[in-house]
Amino acid sequence: MQATATQTNPIISFKHVNKIYDNGTVGLKDINFDIPRGQFLVVVGLSGAGKSTLLRTINRMHEITSGEVLVDNESVSDYKGKALRHLRRHIGMIFQNFNLVKRATVEKNVLSGLVGYYPTWRCVLGLFTPHDRKRAFQALDRVSLTKKLFSRADELSGGQQQRVAIARALMQDPKIMLADEPIASLDPRTTKAVMDTLKRLNREDGITVIVNLHSVELAREYADRIVGLRSGELVYDEPIDQVTEAGLNQIYQTKPEA
């Protein structure tokens, strides 16, 4: 593991991040931690603990109420319009329900990862350069789905759809990959394929990967580090060689003991 100079220059930092929803529900409570470049971080916790919210504060899909989220040492809170879109195009995201356009071809879905780099009129007319079309093919090659290039997305199985979603994120040339319960609607075998793909991107391309998971077993298998959320609070944060069964159980306790 390469953890030399990375500690001093985190790619993402949370500084006193609070999120309170309009109806008064506390989403996140005083979150403080850094994510070093190239880490495979797994966030665990019960449903509603704030995992999805935490993930979405990084690319500003959710706004925070107070505090600061830094990406590459820059606070993302003030980004608007174009600057915000430029932030997002370097952050890949995959979702529990894959979020592909089901009626469109796999190729179009993969190319749609590029739209942040193209002016709107070229996106509308579908004028992608031959170079980028080749990249789309290569991205599909990395998730072993080249044969499906011209299939419609809804003809694919769940696991294949999630790999198309990963290929779409790859087109963004991301520094960070956010994965929100990427395997929650998949069976055990396709789960392994998707998690292995994420791990490979992390190791080979040095992409910082942040994954929300329900499964503690998977977290222990893939993570470099595990953080745990409970009711919007960070209650657990250990590198993988310090993770113990007892420590993880503590995340899932409904009543804190003190």
Binding site: V101, L114, V115
Partner: peptide, 29 residues
Amino acid sequence: IDMGPLEAMKSVGASKVTIIWYAVLPQIL
């Protein structure tokens, strides 16, 4: 319509028009 693809397009940094073109129109055509 399913809002999922819209969220995905937003997350890759698409503009409003692009979001409508890529994520809304195919669903309603």
